[in-house]
Amino acid sequence: MKLRPFPSSILVTAAALGLMVWPLFFPDAFLYFQVLGMACLYGTLALAWSIYGLSGAVSLGHAAFFGLGAYGSALLNHYWHWSPFLTILAGSLASVVFGLIWSFFFRRLRGVYLGLASLAAVEIPRVIIDNWDSLTSGSMGMTGLDRLPTLHLGDWQLAFGADLKAQYYLLLLLVIGATFLYKTIIDSRWGWALRALRENETAATMMGIRVNRERTKALLCSSYLTGICGGLYAHILGLIEPSLVFSLHVSALPLIFTIFGGRTLFFGPVLGALLLYPLEQLVFQPLLPQGHAALYGLVIILTILFFPKGIAAWITRRASA
């Protein structure tokens, strides 16, 4: 590989190292483990959303994949007592199936209308799960799910469920892996094909790119990763309800993190999540216990108005200037 390190990849590596090392100095900062851990989870969600975004789609309905992944894992755990990591990997296939259906029915939709369709698409799994009382106990939600398991490495115990620090490291590893995956996709031939069809579908087709197939592949990757985030969420919380996982809020978060962080750079989505989520949880939550998510609405409006390329583009421009 002819990888010459950019300033931005050095920056990202430094940030990742910082995120790995700080708990050594603050071993009891449990609130921060929890908040940053969730920020990593939402960062992964934003990356998953962005994989679909590479094809030019702006989805307002990723809660559908998140919720299906959550319910898929929860049901496997509840009825068959599979161990959480297995349930997450298998249960998220529900999201992939939904992704296949989505690809077929929305294949002719672009831009605004794809956004509207995705917004409405969430309602279908939500209402079905909400009303299928015998299977999912409906709007009561499912409780008593197994927490993430404990890993025994010789004398070492990594209690991903009970120990917030171990959980933080797990989620940090997840988001680093996802970032790496996202960058690999962007730099690959497939990523190039997605970029081409995003910029001009007619021209991309004319260059021999199978636009529908590439777009579908992007959505399937995106939906599986989103489903995994949903599954993790279910087992971290130990309970889920339709209104919790199929919410507008869940659909909005990856969009907001990505646009705020920056769509054009590989670390933008994660940067957005790592900045905004802690800000919301640690600063806004105490100030406005009821409507603290108002922050997100405000942020997205200001971002589109004042720096539409996101804060990552702004930072790298400042750094290189």
Binding site: R195, A196, E199, N200, T202, A203, A204, M206
Partner: peptide, 12 residues
């Protein structure tokens, strides 16, 4: 083929 109205990738 080429098109009467050129079809390019504008950002590339």
């Amino acid at each position: 083929r080429t098109f009467q109205m050129p079809q390019i990738f504008p950002e590339m």
